[in-house]
Design a protein around this nucleic acid. Structure first.
Lengths: 175, 175
DNA sequence: GTAATCTATTCCAGTTTGGAATATTTTTAA
DNA sequence: TTAAAAATATTCCAAACTGGAATAGATTAC
């Protein structure tokens, strides 16, 4: 029951701030995370349904007079553990920095968690290892295209590592 | 009948080298483009089917004695025009450099087309404009997270532009 | 008072994904 | 030499995701 796609973690993180119904979760997402992550309403509801089936959250129907009832979702203990595991693990690829790693930083700040510097360091290590691998695989470069591809990877990786180092300053005082 | 997703262009580009059947197209893809683009076999076949319906390619059944017949796909005039339009247009976002822009460079080299320097220049312009926009939107940065996000975008954008400039050297002699 | 917007959720068609299923032919190794 | 493995060639399927429309009552605005 492991999930590969990460929008689930965004929803879990939002529920870490307290129980909410679907629309409220989506509202939180739209107002605070839309800048760096996109999620449609229909997908949010579909994910919530599946996550409940997987036991990482539960819902309660809330009956209201003269109104349709709404479903309040809360995160379970299993869900909390899952979320905290995720938030403290580095991502595997540079391409995941923009959305997934950014979300981890976002929640660390939003939920006032400890360990910002720690996860940034772990992430730097992961990327530095990849950078070495890429730099050492220079043999198979035979044409202009391969050269361009190779230098693109190095450039992206290097600038990501520099950014991570800079990030440590932004998060150093409080976390 | 415009398509948003770009794997179609990869298939079109492959057919620019001559008619091929599905398996052969996929083989070409796997051996030459897998490094920077992933496509599953089933999706390749599904796309080919849809592209034929859209008139950018056509197929001929090839009957063989004692064997199941195979379908040979060829690109149409409309398809060629579509492909060439695509290959000479810059992408809109930095995130599309890794796969889509790379594919354009790949095909320019592979099909020995003109205009490599031209499209690189256009791409630099697009990104430089975005970079200015990002740099000028500094007002709404209120916390460490926003600062981190902002500096990430600038770092990625800047390193991409540097890479593009470097690319011009790799492609300057022949194209 | 009625139009627009907000709250709240569901449904649907079209696409995509990854994998398995099918079936024939060619190559490899015991 | 014969069985197994790999290559050729294509289809099918379930699960997931996408974007949008449908529904429907409540509140706000003009």
């Amino acid at each position: 029951m492991s999930f590969k796609s990460s929008p689930e973690y965004a929803l879990l993180g939002i529920l870490m701030t307290g129980p909410k119904h679907g629309y409220e979760i989506y509202g939180y997402f739209s107002s605070k995370m839309k800048q760096f992550w996109h999620l449609s309403m229909s997908q949010a509801y579909a994910l919530l349904k599946r996550m409940e089936k997987n036991g990482i959250l539960i819902s309660k129907e809330e009956w209201q007079v003269n109104r349709p009832s709404k479903k309040i979702f809360s995160i379970t203990q299993a869900g909390k553990e899952r979320f905290l595991d995720w938030v403290h693990s580095p991502v595997k690829h540079v391409r995941d920095l923009r959305i997934e790693f950014m979300a981890k930083l976002f929640f660390i700040k939003e939920l006032k968690l400890k360990g910002a510097l720690d996860i940034i360091d772990k992430q730097i290590e992961v990327l530095q290892e990849k950078l070495h691998l890429i730099k050492s695989s220079k043999e198979k470069i035979i044409d202009e295209f391969q050269t361009a591809l190779h230098s693109f990877k190095i450039a992206q990786m290097t600038s990501a590592i520099e950014w991570l180092k800079e990030c440590k300053n932004y998060f150093s005082c409080k976390y």
